Amino acid sequence: MSTKNRIKINQLLQSQPSGTVFLSSWLVEHGYSHDLLRRYKSSNWLTSIGSGAMIRTGDKVGYEGALYTLQQQGGVPVHLGGKTALALQGRAHYLDLNVQQLFLFCGNNSTLPSWFLNHDWGYRITPIHTSFLPYDIGLTSIPHKTFTLKVANPERALLECLYLTPRVHSLLECYEVMEGMNNLRPKQVQLLLEKCTSIKVKRLFLYMAEKANHRWFDYVDTEQVHLGSGKRAFAREGGVYNSKYRITVPKELED
Rank of each mutant, 00 (worst) to 15 (best):
C196G: 06
D221W: 01
N213D: 13
I247P: 13
D120E: 05
Y123C: 03
Y94Q: 12
L191I: 06
K150N: 15
F132I: 02
K195H: 05
T222L: 03
I49E: 04
Q101F: 10
V21F: 01
N109W: 01
L86F: 04
L184G: 09
R232I: 05
E173P: 02
K211S: 13
L12D: 06
E210S: 04
I9E: 12
V78E: 05
A212H: 01
T222M: 02
L80K: 10
T148I: 09
S243D: 13
E155R: 03
L46G: 03
V76I: 04
Q71E: 02
G90Q: 09
Q16M: 01
G90C: 08
S198Q: 08
S243N: 13
L253C: 08
G58D: 09
A53T: 00
E64W: 07
N98K: 06
L13A: 08
F147T: 02
G65K: 00
N109G: 10
V225D: 02
L171M: 10
L172G: 15
Y163Q: 05
T248M: 09
N108D: 13
T197R: 08
D59V: 01
V99L: 13
N5R: 14
Y241M: 02
I137H: 11
L37T: 11
Y40G: 08
T165P: 10
V78Q: 09
V177E: 11
L102I: 11
I199E: 15
A212I: 02
S229V: 10
A87Y: 15
F22Q: 02
R39T: 12
P17S: 00
Q72M: 03
L253S: 09
H93W: 12
R38P: 05
E64A: 05
Q16R: 07
K231E: 15
L193T: 03
L172P: 09
Q14E: 14
G31M: 07
S42F: 10
V76S: 04
M1Y: 03
Q89R: 07
V151P: 15
V240F: 05
L172Q: 12
T126W: 13
R185E: 15
V201H: 12
T126D: 15
K187T: 14
I142Y: 15
N182H: 14
G82R: 07
I247D: 15
G228Q: 08
L46A: 08
K211A: 08
L102G: 06
N242K: 00
N98G: 11
L172F: 04
P113Y: 02
N213Q: 10
R203N: 11
T69D: 00
A209M: 12
L27D: 05
N153W: 03
V189R: 05
P166L: 02
S198N: 07
L23K: 00
I7C: 10
F22D: 05
